[in-house]
Simulated scan of single mutants.
Amino acid sequence: VEADIVIGADGVNSKVREILLGVEPPIYTGFVAFRSIYPVSLLGDWRPASDAAKWWSDERHPANEDRHFIHYYLTRKRDEMYFVTGSPFPDWPGGVSSVPATKDEIKTCYEGFHPDVQRIIDAAPALSKWPLLERNPLPLWSRDNVVVLGDACHPMKPHMGQGAGMAIEDAAVLFRCIQQADGAFDRAFQMYRATRIERTSEVQRQSHENKWMRTKATDPTWVYSYDAMTTPLVDPETVDA
């Protein structure tokens, strides 16, 4: 296949990133995500108090490792339940794919959590366990006519729910940079990185720390008020490499 440009939007295990930087495994964060999706009919007549909630371990007790449990409905009809966690798991055997999980594992991890959490776990017919992977900010995002975006470029923990959002923002800004550079792809790609690097690095950092929205004092506007179609494009010559 021949192409004018190659845009790598192929995830944390990106083959396009390897073209730019060589083969390097992502960083395992020491956390896994337990996940399950199932029909709410398995909950019987009971429903959780909130349509969507994030339950955190109590940070006032140092013995509690950082862990959280998120649940929400996947459909407007509220007929499908989804939950996902951020759970400490230091002994991941390696690999980047999910593996089956047992109910005993997740029940042990979330012992003492709210009764809503327990009932949602109990109703799950099957569970999987996913390694949470990330990379440090990359030294370059492009070379010649090859460029990366989204998790191929800045994979992060899912704890802010912004991984897909960052990829969509990347794509919008990249489109604008290509337009403005009028076919000069190398300059377009440098402008794209200069415009996006500060924001994506900060979202990576805060996703890693898992403190965003934990208290009422959090101001979420810096995340949600960003407009990728109007944010000023940055001259790459004004940004440090």
Rank of each mutant, 00 (worst) to 15 (best):
V203C: 05
D10Q: 14
A3H: 08
F31P: 05
R135C: 11
M191P: 04
F69V: 12
D104K: 15
Y192E: 08
W46N: 05
I168F: 13
Y82M: 15
N64Q: 13
Q118K: 12
V173S: 11
A33G: 13
R199Q: 03
Q206E: 07
D10L: 15
P232H: 00
W130V: 10
T231A: 14
P100H: 09
F189T: 09
G112F: 08
S98L: 05
F175P: 00
D151V: 09
A49G: 13
A63L: 11
N210H: 13
S201D: 12
W130T: 04
T230H: 06
V40F: 01
I178W: 02
D186N: 14
L127K: 07
A49C: 02
S14W: 10
P115F: 05
A241F: 13
I120L: 10
M156S: 13
Y224S: 14
I70R: 00
G165K: 01
L20M: 02
R176N: 08
S225E: 12
H61R: 15
R67M: 07
P232E: 12
H208S: 15
V96W: 02
V40I: 13
P137T: 12
P48Q: 01
H68T: 11
S128T: 15
G161F: 09
N136S: 11
H114L: 04
D66S: 15
G150S: 10
N64R: 02
L133C: 08
Y224K: 00
T238Y: 01
C153Q: 06
A123C: 14
G112E: 09
K107C: 07
A217D: 11
S207N: 04
P48R: 03
V148R: 00
S36N: 03
A188P: 03
L132C: 10
D91S: 15
H68S: 15
Y224P: 01
M166V: 14
A181F: 12
Q204W: 11
E134K: 14
M229V: 07
T215V: 11
M166I: 14
D144I: 01
V1P: 07
T231I: 14
D10W: 13
E209W: 09
M213N: 12
E18I: 06
V99S: 10
W46Q: 07
S142G: 07
Q180L: 10
A126R: 12
R199C: 02
V147P: 01
K211P: 00
W55E: 09
S225M: 09
T85E: 07
Q206F: 03
D10A: 14
T108D: 12
D186Q: 15
E59W: 12
N13H: 05
W212G: 01
Y192R: 09
V6H: 02
H68K: 10
L74V: 10
F83L: 09
V12D: 03
P48S: 04
D151P: 03
T102R: 07
E59R: 13
G165E: 06
M160Y: 05
V1N: 13
G183S: 02
S201H: 11
